[in-house]
Design a protein around this nucleic acid. Structure first.
Lengths: 220, 220
DNA sequence: ACTCAATTTAAACAGTTGTTTGAAACATTT
DNA sequence: AAATGTTTCAAACAACTGTTTAAATTGAGT
């Protein structure tokens, strides 16, 4: 049996994730948790401390549910990349209803609060480091770090897009599309797209030029 | 001289963009516009209609400020792609402070309201169509439409990322990075990355397989 | 100067917000 | 059973929300 405290955190997670910190009301939270209005202040002091506790809990559950995958020693890096992308996509738009934990984190990314700095160090940075370690096997060892990071962000950005703009994509989708936007298909596309870009990038010479806008032609 | 009505819309835009619809208060808006509290209801009826009017205004200003670029007839598609990416990045993280118009649109993307459907048809879809027309020159004509769209979304996703996760990126950045994340450098990277992926993709045979999870190995 | 409509204003309204309170209900120990 | 500490509850609190009202102010037009 869940204690009242835990039940409140769970309800608070859902409500905060859906409505945001300011718009969520303690009365909604307590009603969802079948608890009295005063319970929030009794167990957590005030609304903000409940929010901080909720974000921590979200981080805890996510890292428990999606541990960093321990691949066999000599797995092909391309396989690892596909696994990473699939896992990230699954977390983003996983299954049917998005778990509130992920939704809360997304809110923190978009509009960081006090609860954010801890999340960056303990959740987002390890994920980035993992991706960078995979990329380091795919890119020439001479690749400058800032280019490695740009590639990593390009990959993450492709995944994040379907979380951010999923509703808009649906509005603009044709009947034909719908069957081609499953998680597996998207992961497949993103992996291929990125692998192609990487293998090509690694052969092109980058002179780290700053006064060389390359094919600049912003908006004529 | 701005009329009161226009001044209210302008203030409302800033407040709505920063705090969201629910959290923004008409008193904050009116104070910023140096108008009386009742002015909102007098000119717009209620808060929601003011919001709708504000979103419309944002769309109007953006399309005026960033018109679809009329390239010379036979411009190289790669050049067009770079222009598209640069313009999109500039709109996303342009200059110093983001204009409230863009911020409002982003909010609609992330959490669509009643004001959204019109935006999709009149603003987002034309942008997507433009990108698709550029891609059609870069991809083999036999490329299925869903694959074209996936490529388009991969490009848009890379741009969107720096808008969405810009704060987080800064938190995780090293001193080395900072000089390598200007708009031009990012546009350069994204363009090269995507061009490489596209040219590679166009050579790979896609059998449109559904029961073929390719290199599936999600999280062992 | 008078009229009449459009605009602005301060005050008030009803409803919701987070939080507090003090007594009841419960559990555990003496 | 009595006493003690913990948890729940309905009610109330002050502050804030969007909205309304009715009186003031303004600005032409005659």
């Amino acid at each position: 049996m869940d204690g009242v405290r835990e039940k409140i955190i769970d309800s608070a997670g859902r409500v905060f994730a859906e409505r945001g910190y300011k718009s969520a009301t303690v009365r909604q939270i307590c009603q969802a948790a079948e608890a009295n209005v005063a319970a929030v202040n009794y167990y957590f002091g005030d609304k903000e401390q409940l929010y901080l506790e909720t974000v921590k809990q979200a981080h805890r559950r996510l890292t428990a549910q999606f541990p960093l995958p321990p691949w066999p020693k000599e797995t092909e890096p391309a396989i690892k990349l596909n696994g990473f992308v699939s896992a990230m996509l699954a977390r983003m738009i996983g299954g049917k209803a998005m778990p509130w934990e992920q939704q809360l984190m997304l809110r923190e990314v978009l509009h960081p609060t006090n609860a954010c700095r801890e999340l960056v160090e303990e959740y987002f940075r390890p994920q980035l480091e993992l991706l960078l370690s995979i990329l380091s096997e795919l890119l020439p060892s001479a690749t400058p770090t800032h280019k490695q990071r740009q590639c990593a962000f390009s990959i993450i950005g492709q995944c994040l897009f379907y979380r951010i703009a999923g509703d808009i994509v649906e509005m603009m989708a044709t009947k034909d599309d719908q069957s081609h936007f499953s998680i597996e298909q998207l992961a497949d596309h993103i992996t291929k797209f990125s692998l192609a870009a990487i293998s090509e990038t690694s052969t092109s010479e980058d002179h780290d030029s700053n006064a060389h806008p390359s094919t600049s032609l912003a908006r004529p």
